[in-house]
Amino acid sequence: MSHLKQTHYAPLTEAVAIELALSLNFFTENAVLSCKEIGDGNLNLVFHIVDEQGSKGLIIKQALPYAKVVGESWPLTLKRAKIEADALKTFGQLAPDYVPTIYFTDDVLAVTVMEDLSHLLIARTGFINGETYPLISKHLGEYLAKTLFYTSDYGLGPSAKKEQVQMFINPELCKITEDLIFTDPYFDADTNYFEDGLLSDVEALWQDDELRFQVNLLKRSFLTEAEVLLHGDLHTGSVFASNSETKVIDPEFAFYGPAGFDIGQVFANLLFQVIVNTKNQERFVHHIETVWNVFKDEFTHLWNTENKEILAKTDKFLSYTLAKFFEDSLGFAGCELIRRTIGLAHVTDLDSIEDEKTRLAAKRKTLELGKILIKQRKEIINCAAFISKVKEVL
């Protein structure tokens, strides 16, 4: 970008972020801009820039070369910013209603400039504050169906898919997932964090050989099954929402993997609310059912109308595919429940419970449900059986 002073990577300041925003001709030439760094994640700077005299705004996101949660001792590639930008563009073409508009990207600065979503709230925060977002599960079901179908061999065609797989090789961020979701919670790793009151529960989990075997099978799937382009980190902190809108953000973990991973992340992060939000428990159960039912119906429609594999257009093969996705999603949901309870990166849904006895009880339910979903995923053959298992734990 010749009209910017920075031609090499350096973390943006608020002043330089404003300079970048002005250079894009998004605002009027004499606009008075204000800028605030609002990033609360672990990996990035996020600047919110608004025209103080108007209503226009935009977001500038810049990848940091390390994980903020640990510091500069945990270096990370800046290439993830390009992967995230490319994923947002890809998903935006496939499901434009549910992805922010991208205005500009710069690979050297590791910057993405995108639509201002400040009129929405992070879904996890909203849920904790008592919001229930009546349309979020329908929207996420549609988002999942379109992004997972159209990036598969069946929606994209094998040759085009293989080319896209190359674009989204993402070893460094996949390594974070492989360690923090599929490895570290299952032994006494330094990255684990949990209250002393959970020690006996965690030690029992570490000694559960069948659980560790099943987690290894799920990890093998994550490592080897390049079925679809995944968001890769689709929790409720990666979703902006209101009562009428849903936008999926932050796909920097995007790569080609098993379709059930994204679905399972959505399931698990709704399950946190099922466990902790007794007032709206049934509504969140309904959200989970809606995600799956809308996904299944929309994916089925796309399979039957857009399938590029002639011999795959059969009800039997569709049923087999959906059954595999569902089984995988339960196992991956179980892994997410466990790692968010005792691993490095927790969720506020659980940790914000002030009463220790109540908080520990919720976390025990989370661990128990996680183990059930991992070990019994083959026997839980439909959504009704899934919800029944959930209710047994509550």
Rank of each mutant, 00 (worst) to 15 (best):
Q53H: 12
N216S: 11
F332I: 05
I338D: 03
K316G: 10
S2K: 12
D184Q: 13
A254K: 01
H287W: 02
N216Y: 02
G57L: 07
N277C: 00
E19Y: 03
N170P: 09
R364D: 02
V69H: 10
V108E: 08
A17E: 03
F168R: 01
V291T: 08
V228H: 11
N382S: 13
A15K: 15
L109P: 09
L229W: 07
Y66F: 04
D351A: 03
F284W: 11
L318E: 09
F272H: 12
A333F: 04
P158R: 10
K36F: 13
Q6R: 15
D349I: 11
I249H: 05
K391G: 09
F182Y: 06
K279V: 14
E142L: 05
I381D: 14
L199F: 15
E14C: 14
K279F: 14
D153G: 00
V50W: 07
H235Y: 11
K161L: 13
V108N: 08
N304Y: 12
D97A: 15
A85I: 02
S118N: 11
T177M: 00
S2A: 13
L360Q: 01
F284K: 10
R339A: 00
V70M: 07
L367E: 00
D179Y: 14
S238E: 00
K365G: 08
T321G: 09
F267N: 01
I136V: 09
T177D: 02
